[in-house]
């Protein structure tokens, strides 16, 4: 019994310790003031690797999710004869919730795991050490551009996801099922408020972008530099990011849309 409590305490301490390490790590990354010229090129490279390469999965998933929303919305709403409200339903779900959340989950799976694996591999092959020995801070050269890249790419990906989703919903609702186009957009415009709905969605995705990239680069940097270590770090990235996104989504939704 005592043994079990001791074990619990130890794992609690271990948890606190890894939180502490990731905080120190984050501070180390953020303190390094970016040098304009060279760092900008590194950032562009990461925006390419993180943002552009995730675009395909974001476009395809956004389109399908929008189409499914259109289909489901139509079947439910037509029971009440208010299938005109389909536009507002699709837009609000996407802009407020599904856009930021699904983008973040896909991001964790596509870009986050790749970041962790890449950094872990650089650690395992001593590339990070050799950088340190060349007098180059890997936090600044390798980690910071990846963190900022993820941070910038996520909101862009999320608005693209929402837009494509709305277009997919319109494809199904208007072009296929025959909802009147005027009321589709009209209802949507009447109910979606730019600063309350769209902006809150963007704020969510900024938070998610930051958290997901932080988890990904930290797991990569902190991993055990062996193949087993890298693969477990990659798994951890996806699991922790997904949990963090869903948990934070609840908190943010309660703060933003809760009526108290």
């Amino acid at each position: 019994m005592i043994d079990r409590i001791a074990r619990l305490g130890r794992s609690g301490l271990e948890l606190a310790r890894s939180f502490g390490r990731s905080g120190i790590f984050l501070a180390g990354v953020l303190v390094g003031v970016p040098r304009t010229g060279a760092d900008f090129a590194l950032l562009v490279r990461q925006l390419y690797a993180i943002g552009v390469l995730s675009l395909a999965i974001i476009l395809v998933s956004g389109l399908f999710i929008g189409m499914v929303l259109g289909l489901q919305g139509y079947t439910i709403l037509s029971d009440y004869g208010s299938e005109d409200a389909i536009g507002q339903m699709i837009a609000l779900t996407l802009v407020r919730e599904l856009g930021p959340v699904v983008t973040a989950l896909l991001f964790a799976g596509r870009a986050g795991s790749a970041l962790t694996a890449e950094i872990g591999l650089m650690k395992a092959t001593e590339q990070l050490s050799s950088m340190e020995m060349m007098g180059v801070d890997p936090l600044r050269q390798v980690i910071a551009p990846r963190l900022w890249g993820g941070f910038l790419a996520m909101p862009l990906l999320a608005v693209i996801f929402s837009s494509v989703g709305i277009w997919g919903g319109k494809l199904v609702g208007v072009d296929w099922l025959g909802v009147f186009e005027g009321s589709f957009w009209g209802n949507m415009q009447a109910s979606v408020e730019f600063f309350d709905d769209v902006m809150n969605g963007i704020i969510k995705s900024i938070v998610f972008g930051f958290v997901c990239s932080w988890i990904a680069v930290f797991q990569g940097y902190d991993c055990v530099p062996t193949s087993a270590g890298i693969s477990s770090a990659t798994t951890k990235t996806v699991v922790y990011s997904s949990l963090a996104v869903l948990g934070l989504d609840f908190v943010l939704t309660a703060v933003m849309f809760g009526s108290f």
């Binding site: 562009v44 490279r45 925006l47 390419y48 943002g51 552009v52 675009l55 837009a91 802009v95 909101p155 862009l156 990906l157 608005v159 693209i160 929402s162 837009s163 494509v164 709305i166 957009w185 949507m188 415009q189 009447a190 979606v192 408020e193 730019f194 709905d197 769209v198 963007i202």
Partner: peptide
Amino acid sequence: MEVTVGVFMLLGVFALIFLALQVSG
């Protein structure tokens, strides 16, 4: 690479404009 990143950013801005004008009116 720079061009594709530029296109990506523009795509994001267009999406935002779409959400602002067409979706939220």
